[in-house]
C-alpha cells in the first residue's frame, strides 16, 4: 500500500537563492497522524503549502517529489493536480477568522464546495454539513449556518473549519497550527475534536505545530524541522523517551511541561543552535540542486 503522502528530498528556494526547505523527506501513512514540529520560521507552513499547491510565487521548488496516494504531483498537469488536491486533501488553517470569507454566510460557504466542485446535490451537501456540525459538537446548527464568520467565536469558527475539512472525506488533512490562534481554554477542546474526527473518519493528518505538548497528545509519528531541514524523525513515544538529535533535546528542554511546569519558557539552548547553523551552512556550501 502506498503512503498517503510521501515527500522525497524536497528543496525550495527564495528568489535570492536562500533555501527555505532542505531536502525534506517525510511520509504520512493512511490513517496516521504525523506531527511536524519546529520553531516559528522553520518552514512548517511552507511544507504544507507545497503539498497543497499554494506556495507563494516567490518560492520555487528546485528538487524533490511529492506523492499523494502514489500519484506524483510533479508529473500531473496543473489542472489534474488541482483536481487531485481538491478531491483528496483539505486544510485546517491556523487563523479561523481569515480562512472564512467574511461576506458569505457559513452555510452556503460550507456547501458550495461540495456542490460546485464535487458535484453533490444541494440536499446531500446540506445533510452532510449538518452531520459534520453535529460531529464537531455544534449544538445550534441553524444559527451557525445562518451566521457570518465574525458573528461566531474563534472556537466556533475553528469547529466550522474542522467540519468543512472532513466533509468531503479527504484522505489527507494538513492542519497548520490549528489551535495556535485560539484561547488556551478552547485549545484543548479543539485538539480533542480533531483527534476524535481523525479516529472516526480514519483520515491521515499532517499536523503542524510548534508545541511538543500537542505532539504528545495527537500524533503517532513526529518529524522535527529546523531551518527547513528534518533533523529527527521518530515514533512520538520513542521521541519523548529517547530524543536523539541535540536540537530535539534542546527543544524539549525549552518546553516547560517536560521539565518543570512552573519554569518560565526558556529559549532553545544557544550553543545547540550555533552548532546546527554551522552544520547547515556547510551543507549549503556543498549543495547543488539535483545532487543534494
Amino acid at each position: 500500500m502506498s503512503a498517503c503522502l510521501d515527500i522525497r528530498g524536497l528543496s525550495a528556494v527564495l528568489p535570492n537563492g536562500q533555501r527555505v526547505l532542505r531536502s525534506v523527506s517525510l511520509s504520512v501513512q493512511p490513517g496516521e497522524v504525523r506531527a511536524l514540529v519546529g520553531e516559528s520560521g522553520a518552514g512548517k507552513t511552507m511544507i504544507g503549502k507545497a503539498v497543497l499547491g499554494v506556495l507563494p510565487k516567490s518560492v520555487r521548488i528546485v528538487e524533490g517529489e511529492m506523492l499523494i496516494e502514489g500519484e506524483d504531483l510533479g508529473r500531473l498537469d496543473p489542472k489534474a493536480r488541482r483536481t487531485l488536491i481538491g478531491a483528496r486533501t483539505a486544510l485546517i488553517p491556523q487563523d479561523p477568522l481569515t480562512a472564512l470569507n467574511p461576506s458569505r454566510r457559513i452555510g452556503p460557504q460550507m456547501t458550495d464546495r461540495l456542490v460546485r466542485i464535487l458535484g453533490w446535490s444541494t440536499e446531500t451537501a446540506d445533510q452532510r454539513i449538518r452531520q459534520l456540525l453535529d460531529e464537531v459538537q455544534i449544538r445550534d446548527p441553524e444559527r451557525v449556518l445562518k451566521s457570518y464568520p465574525h458573528e461566531l467565536s474563534g472556537g466556533m469558527r475553528q469547529r466550522v473549519l474542522i467540519a468543512a475539512a472532513f466533509a468531503a472525506e479527504p484522505r489527507l488533512i494538513v492542519a497548520d497550527e490549528p489551535t495556535t490562534a485560539l484561547d488556551v481554554t478552547v485549545q484543548k477542546q479543539i485538539l480533542r475534536l480533531i483527534a476524535q474526527l481523525q479516529r472516526d473518519h480514519g483520515t491521515a493528518i499532517l499536523f503542524v505545530t510548534h508545541d511538543l505538548g500537542v505532539v504528545a497528545k495527537i500524533s503517532q509519528k513526529v518529524s522535527v524541522l529546523y531551518a527547513g531541514k528534518v533533523v529527527e524523525e521518530a515514533d512520538s513515544s520513542a521521541l519523548f523517551a529517547n530524543p536523539q538529535h541535540p536540537y530535539t533535546r534542546a527543544l524539549m528542554a525549552a518546553t516547560p511541561r517536560y521539565t518543570d511546569p512552573f519554569a518560565s519558557l526558556k529559549p532553545v539552548d544557544e550553543s545547540v543552535l550555533a552548532g546546527l547553523a554551522a552544520e547547515i551552512a556547510a551543507a549549503d556550501q556543498a549543495w547543488r540542486p539535483g545532487h543534494g
Binding site: L52, G53, V54, R82, T83, I85, G86, A87, T89, A90, L91, P93, Q94, D95, T98, A99, L100, N101, P102, R113, I117
Partner: peptide, 10 residues
Amino acid sequence: DYVESARIAG
C-alpha cells in the same frame, strides 16, 4: 486565507 482555501478546494 479564504482565497487560498478556495484554491486548495479546486
